[in-house]
Design a binder for these strands. Structure first.
Length: 874
RNA sequence: GGGGGCGUAGCUCAGUUGGUUAGAGCGUUUGCUUGACAUGCAAGAGGUCACAGAUUCGAGUUCUGUCGUCCCCACCA
């Protein structure tokens, strides 16, 4: 047992305690058939950098849930890991190399990968350290990485199975190309923003005639790839041109005019240039009309030889020059400013080019269907459930998933091509000869897989799938996934269809969705704005518990929240209060230990706080089970601060400082019992400080981490007694307010005259009332006049209070106060009276409610009479 | 174009299935070195729950519409 310090100083124990937890193996999950498993897979942070506030909230939520379940007796696995983050990491490494004047090509694939692994060691390790600082109780013995052997094995298996089923294919499609990263991207990886651009109106001369068709375009440089101009079939203005041929300006090519319903006659000029190689819609039009696909751009965003004299120029330079040339030839009609949405690479922000390219795709339709059904049938539930709609929306409109990336850092596609016969071979293990022609000259596909392909397998690849390991059969499917709404399309959705496809089961039962942590002004935290706040720096200032608590209170599931120092400070202040309350208890309870309440003689105040505790246990447990962490935290803070600190500790003091040994032991026992329970209830939220205090409790051994979560005990609910005791509290509050109202100094003790039927209750708590209300004595009288001529009085539930204050009373103020009180009571009478005179209310509302309302009305009528009498006596 | 969130006290936000007098933190006013805590204690002030309808005995809570605001998706070249 340690002596407690006078102030809460988290730095003194957080690291030490974390080390103890780890060394005792409390985080290590055990396959225990006698227990029910509870599994959470940590969304693996990218190894690109360090944890930010969003991670802090995400991890805190998971840790809180997981600690709660562990204390409830589940066999908990919270599996941590990191993500190789293929494109994001590669961008960073390339940037780093650029500073050294190096390029990927100069370095070569092998050397580049060596650097990448070194990067992983450095930053992956840093993230682990940050997770520890937060108090994350994850199982480090099972730490995973998306590119470790296990996960890589799962990736090859998954790809192989899709290939065998024909669900993965290679083909030339229009994809999103990032000229910065020089790789293909999936639809989800493109972010659109409205950029200012121009609309160029260009004349396309009709072959053999003096006429033109005018087309409007935002991207004139792509005209070298035009293979048609399209008009709406019902557009009479252009019907006579359909089938004719146009001369494509700046080239010596001609292109046909086609009719296609895709064209909106109202927009632009009603005639659209069709560039199948550089626009997804045009690509579709091209397919319908059998148009050639002419790609005029290189992978780096420069024009290729098909752009004639513009070959080699950057796309924007080519645009400028092409427009100038058109103008010089009199083919440019006009230029209009035009705002339009432009796609950007989510990693390097380059403007994405839609380009036709040969890539690997996953066929989505057959995979999306079961994934939708699983949520429809409630096999997986979103919390809050509105996010299911977003999920449906994505899956219902999904296109095939482009999974190949022209990058080096990632899982290399498990496909080989035979140099001799051209055979494509997909295999789990590197093949040595071509199964078709026997040649040993095989070349592996150069590309790697989309980083989300491996993330999609995370809930089971980390457990050893495809092998039927002990872990996999015990811990899978997982129970809860905790993540932000922003990655539902990237990750949640893909885990869902992957889990269903490969394991036949949903990967998780509940998906708890949270929002973003924004800055003080409500802006997204971002590097470019420089408004990010480092959680570690906050932990350094306030401690991890304060940060954790501040991130969970006042937050509704799925809603964004703002980070403010003020919130953390408020949390810190609360924890300091808990600390000092504990110090008070421990100081007084040197030789006592947490009792079995059956052996303690309980006073009314004791029963009251025990009753309040039961309510608190019941409600917080319920909230926790519903993932309403914010509500649970609020309830706990409220209980500790208001019920325990403000009331019970103060109420216990007379007994503690009195001569009655039994009462003293009773109060100490209850203090310890309630404190002990409160600590266990709070532990999932603020693990460090609760552990530290727990270790100071007399007679408590072992860790609070493995202590049992408090359970509601109906025998300790003491409903009636607790309710009666509320009357005592109200009495004390009433006296305090009366003293303030008449400017009586708090230190000055007053004599209380009470007209009451609750004499026994008041007497049983006499010392507490005297102490907390600041009174010198209590006299029970049958009428206020016995209190003397000049009195101030107030009615509360338990009694009518009279205080003789003589010259201290300011008659005018007292009258005002009473009148105000009368107003309030009249209002209540009107409200309750109105309700009760409503026949429908009497007939249809629950009986209990009607009775309550009647009782209330009676009470208020009684109060009204008393106040009126009081006013007239003044 | 489609979908969704938000609008509650000066500020930031909670508000579980409709049911006492709508809450918290911060701020604010007044008074307090009250034998755990000034990172504190006590007492207060402060709200037509955006607006208009509807359902209901009863609506901050359910439904419809309006306004304001933010976000996601689609991408008319």
């Amino acid at each position: 047992m340690r002596e407690m310090q006078t102030t809460y100083n988290p730095k003194e124990f957080e690291d030490r305690i974390y080390g103890e937890w780890v060394s005792r193996g409390y985080f290590t999950a055990k396959v225990d058939p006698a227990k029910v498993p509870f599994t959470v897979m940590m969304p693996p942070p990218n190894i690109t950098g360090q944890l930010h506030m969003g991670h802090a909230m995400d991890e805190t939520m998971q840790d809180t849930i997981v600690r709660f379940k562990r204390m409830q007796g589940y066999s908990v696995l919270w599996l941590p890991g990191t993500d190789h983050a293929s494109i994001a990491t590669e961008v960073k490494i390339v940037d780093q190399m650029k500073k050294e004047g190096l390029s990927k090509e100069q370095l070569g694939r092998e050397e580049f990968l060596r650097r990448a692994w070194a990067w992983k060691e450095k930053y992956g390790g840093r993230i682990v350290e940050q997770l520890k600082k937060l108090g994350s109780s994850c199982d480090w013995s099972r730490l995973a990485f998306t590119m470790d052997e296990r996960c890589s094995n799962a990736v090859r298996e998954a790809f192989f199975r899709l290939y065998e089923k024909g669900l993965v294919y290679r083909g030339s499609r229009i994809i999103n190309w990032c000229p910065g990263c020089k790789t293909a991207l999936s639809d989800a990886e493109v972010e659109y923003s409205e950029d200012a651009g121009f609309f160029w109106y260009i004349r396309y001369p009709v072959e053999g005639e003096e006429e033109f068709l005018i087309v409007a375009t935002t991207r004139p440089e792509t005209m070298f790839g035009d293979t048609a101009v399209a008009v709406n079939p019902s557009d009479k203005r252009f019907s006579r041109y359909v089938g004719k041929t146009l001369r494509l300006p700046l080239t010596d090519r001609t292109i046909p005019v086609v009719a296609d319903g895709y064209v909106d006659p109202e927009f632009g000029t009603g005639a659209v240039k069709i560039t199948p190689a550089h626009d997804p819609n045009d690509f579709e039009v091209g397919l319908r009309h059998n148009l050639p696909v002419v790609r005029v751009m290189n992978d780096d965003g420069t024009m290729n030889e098909l752009a004639g004299e513009y070959a080699g120029l950057d796309r924007y330079e080519a645009r400028k020059r092409a427009v100038a040339a058109l103008e010089a030839q009199g083919l440019l009609v006009k230029v209009e400013p035009h705002k339009h949405n432009v796609g950007h690479c989510y990693r390097c922000r380059s403007t994405v080019e839609p380009i036709v390219s040969k890539q690997w795709f996953v066929k989505m339709a057959p995979l999306a269907k079961p994934a939708i059904e699983a949520v429809m049938k409630n096999k997986t539930k979103f919390v809050p459930d509105r996010f299911a709609k977003i999920y449906y929306n994505w899956l219902e409109n999904i296109r095939d998933w482009c999974i190949s990336r022209q990058l080096w850092w990632g899982h290399r596609i498990p496909v080989w091509y035979c140099d001799d016969c051209g055979e494509t071979i997909c295999a789990k293990d590197t093949p040595t000869v071509c199964p078709k022609c026997g040649s040993a000259r095989l070349t592996q596909d150069e590309d790697v897989l989309d980083t989300w392909f491996s993330s999609a397998l995370w809930p089971f690849s980390t457990l050893g799938w495809p092998d039927c390991t002990e872990d996999f059969s015990y811990f899978y499917p997982t129970d809860a996934l905790v993540t932000g709404y922003d990655i539902i399309p990237f990750w949640v959705m893909r885990m869902m269809f992957s889990g269903l496809e490969y394991t036949g089961k949903v990967p998780f039962r509940d998906v708890l969705i949270h929002g973003l942590v924004r800055d003080e002004q409500g802006r997204k935290m971002s590097k470019s704005l420089g408004n990010g706040i480092d959680p570690l720096e906050v932990i350094d200032r306030y401690g991890a518990d304060s940060l954790r608590l501040s991130l969970l209170t006042g937050v509704a599931p799925g809603n964004d929240t703002r980070y403010t120092d003020a919130k953390v400070e408020a949390a810190r202040n609360f924890i300091n209060k808990l600390w000092n309350a504990a110090r008070f208890v421990v100081m007084n309870a040197k030789d006592v230990s947490v009792p079995d309440l059956g052996t303690v003689r309980l006073q009314p105040a004791d029963r009251w706080i025990i009753s309040r505790l039961q309510t608190c246990i019941r409600e917080t447990t319920l909230s926790m089970q519903k993932y309403d962490l914010g509500i649970a935290a609020d309830k706990l803070v409220d209980f500790v601060r208001n019920d325990f600190c403000d009331w019970y500790i103060e109420l216990s003091k007379p007994a503690l400082y009195g001569d009655d040994g039994e009462k003293k032991r009773g109060a100490l026992g209850v203090l310890l019992f309630v404190l002990d329970s409160a600590l266990r209830l709070l532990h999932p939220f603020i693990p460090f400080v609760t552990e530290e205090i727990y270790s100071c409790l007399p007679g408590r051994e072992g860790s609070i981490m493995v202590a049992e979560y408090p359970r509601y005990n109906a025998r300790l609910a003491y409903k009636k007694e607790a309710k009666a005791f509320e009357g005592v509290i109200e009495l004390i509050k009433t006296v305090r307010a009366m003293k303030v109202a008449v400017n009586c100094p708090p230190a000055k003790k007053v004599r209380l005259f009470l007209v009451t039927e609750g004499r026994r209750l008041v007497n049983a708590n006499k010392s507490a009332v005297l102490r907390l209300a600041g009174a010198s004595e209590i006299e029970f009288v049958s009428d206020g006049s016995e209190a003397g001529e000049k009195t101030v009085s107030q009615v509360c539930g338990l009694c009518h209070v009279f205080i003789p204050l003589g010259e201290l009373v300011n008659l005018e103020e007292e009258k005002k106060r009473l009148e105000k009180e009368l107003d309030r009571v009249m209002g209540e009478i009107a409200r309750a009276g109105g309700k009760l005179s409503n026949v429908n209310f009497i007939a249809k509302a629950p009986k209990k409610l009607v009775e309550d309302e009647r009782a209330k009305l009676e009470k208020y009528i009684d109060m009204k009479a008393k106040i009126e009498k009081q006013i007239s006596e003044l």
